[in-house]
Design a protein around this nucleic acid. Sequence first.
RNA 1: GGGCGGUUAGCUCAGUUGGCUAGAGCGCUGCGUUGACAUCGCAGAGGUCACUGGUUCAAGUCCAGUAUCGCCCACCA
Length: 921
Amino acid sequence: MTTTERRAHDLSFLSSLIGAYDGSQVEDAMYAFWEDGGWFRPSEAVDEEAKPFTVIMPPPNVTGALHLGHAVTLTIEDALIRWHRMLGDPTLWLPGLDHAGIATQSVVEAQLAREGMSRHDLGREAFEERVWDWVGRTRPRITSQARRMGASCDWERTVFTLDETPRQAVRKTFVALFNDERIYRGARIINWDPQMLTALSDVEVEYREDEGKLWHVRYPFVDARGNELDDGVVIATTRPETIPADVAIAVHPEDERWQPHLGREVRLPLRGFSRLIPLVADEAVDREFGTGALKITPGHDQLDFEIGERHGLEPIRVVDWDGAMTSEAGLYAGLDRDEARVTVAEHLEEDGYLVRTEAHIHNVGHSQRSGVVVEPLVSNQWFVDTDALAAEAARVVRDGEVRIVPERSTSVYLQWMDNIRPWCISRQLWWGHRIPAWYCRDCDSGALIESEDGEFTVDEGSHPIVEMQDPTVCPRCGGRDLVQDPDMLDTWFSSGLWTHSTLGWPDETDDLKRFYPSSVMETGYDILFFWVARMMMLGCYNMGSAPFETVYLHGLVRDALGRKMSKSLDNVIDPLEKADQFGMDALRFTLATGSTPGHDMRLTDERLEGSRNFANKLWNGARFVLGEVAQAEGAITDASAATALEDRWIQSRLAAVTESVDELLRQFQLGEAARQIQDFLWNELFDWYVEASKVRLRQGDLAPLGVLARVLDAGLRLLHPWMPFITEAIWQQLKPYLPDEGGCAALIGARYPQPGDGTRDTAAESDFQAVRDVVTSIRQLRADYRVQAGQWSEVYVQPQPETTQPISASTALIEVLARSRPLHVIGAGDAAPSDQVATAVLPSAEIIVPLGGLVDVEQERGRLTKDLEQVGKRLRGAEAKLSNPGFRAKAPTAVVEQAEALAAELQRQRTELEARIASLG
RNA sequence: GGGCGGUUAGCUCAGUUGGCUAGAGCGCUGCGUUGACAUCGCAGAGGUCACUGGUUCAAGUCCAGUAUCGCCCACCA
């Protein structure tokens, strides 16, 4: 049967599935069932006043494929969304796609390169068409992959960052910031990627430690006639190739070594240069480093640029856009910057200016995208003055208007915001949002530098025209020969508008009014600065309020060895491959329970297997329940009518878990919540209640059926946000047996269990615990003495007064679960066999198992002595605590009473154990 | 140079207002084909909670410091 055939939503095939759970047989059908049912749309009928729960999905790259980062985001967001949908909140999860400027362009350029072409061979328009073509072909992949994950987002609202509305949003934001004088064009030192041939922002530069060299170079003083003297200033540099761009030597103003020489000049010690540069004083120089003298190269260093500005020194550019040396580099012109470094160093050495060379490990900036070493260059670019934007973005976090989970990330965020620098937003790319600025060929003729292929760059002194409508006339001269700025905007500029451009802004749409700000922004901590920070700044700026209430940052998924996944290590795990192997629910469960917020996790097959096994356990446990209720043909009584101890116990446990899960989810502790649900279903429902229920069911007592149905129903509801496919598949089978058919057509829309339904019964919990202890103890004794599993044992149980009733009432249960028949529940004074018996002393009872010849007196003595030691140790601890005068005086009464009761109980056990040991002779 | 995180069973990790014997999964040992499940069941072994000091009646949990691993930020050439 194919997916399309199942779209009629005949889910009857589910009942034919047997044995081991196989997610691939149900996942597609379940997704189609939900989507066709319209479950992913926010329900329009609900109370318009109700506060909606909104998540705007981080848009994956249109040309990308689903990786584990997406998988984590989708898992967490889907769980949150499904939970809120089941709470009955109006729920919107809005998906989208990002054009990913540099990333996408570089992929297409790589394709062109394989065809022996560059984008310049195609020209701007044809290149853009080519990218659109590629985007059109790859776009469906990522969305279909998100569907496979089970993402219950509203696909009808999908937004692409290059759609008309986001374009308008970009335009409006740019114009507003420009008019506010928060966007400007100017020559500044920027990070240049010589491979991608574009400017980068500071955050797009990754600093890595490289092994380099530190060249100590002497810049000679000259006499009045310009003749070199023997002494000079020795500086240390890692970049001798930039010596031709040196404009000064700087020392610290209070450094007495250099004070006598301030104002003197030194000569560039390089072949073909006779330039003299001054010795200046600047506080930015570190006296401790090297000789305390620093060569100043404002054209190729951020710090030097700032020092140069303070001293009125003009930058010189010796490294060109492509990384080769410019004509300013004299005889080194044309060499690659790396070659020039080697050559310059050789010449310095030959000419006697190289004092020494040492190995030096230092941080070198690499382009995040291309990986090449970034070249700091002075260039005319567009910038956002972020000071005021960042101040507001920091304030809303400081004032608690936005909460960051985990909380410690708050300080990272604030630290960054408080030290922000202007944001370079122009990129020399052809793919993305074009900068909405125009120039007049008449007014700006001096600033527009045209190249042969019709492209041009904009130099200083231009007069950009920035308006909401494309201008046709120059406001200065009335000229009509206008050209648009050639550059594109940083992708993160449009991504920064994502929180409101997806909802229709700049139009005042209903969606915008209803869903802004969103409830949770969930993403990896690695894009806190790239994305979250920008959304905060631009959201506050455009909307006047923070764009979301909570930022939830998840950690990175690492491989089994804890390494970051990378193509070069060849350790990349494909989430879909793992889903094929273990089932999508298992993958989701593993990712959700793998770590706590903000912490990295390791993904291993062992953990995936564990989750798969859980899915299988659930499937088979449910098959048992379904089989029993089907057999009863509707003779299911209400769960509240079942009043046996185990009935009350499991329902109380359900209430307890429900309460805990609710609390955890409200604190964004998704992983812990899922773990507790798993624990409840496996270790309590399936291991104990189901086994207990069989005892009565086999006797024809159908009372447990109502409880099984109710608890399974609630368990499926609780688990659904994490394991949507299997829970829905089972629930569809269970639904006909539920009162009122469960109140809904599908689990995805059913009500989430809520705390406080009155079924909590702590007495039942402790009573059943006593029964469990008896069962476990008998099993333990039997195992210790190697009683054959199939053989029944006669057992005497002598309960404590307070547990007599529950244990007596549960004899049939204990018999079956512990293979104990006949089972004698005897009173405190009643005689029990004392010869050839194995015994155990429990808080709730004593267990006596006559085992005939199996019992070894020495073994029994050893066992009981070990127990006695344990009890004695604990008793000493309890007594020490109680004899501490401060404890009784200061600890809460309840804690003191508890300790007293424990001490009394341990004393009783000790006495009993001593008697047992004595009776062994 | 700053900031943050990890250090808990052989392995991977939970443990969020300090309070009974610190938990789970995997792995390990023994037993087991009882009609939901061997992707399972039952029982068991296994931990000085990195270290030192402090606060407290009470510390894995709070404070200070140390060690070690890792991450982020920063203009030491």
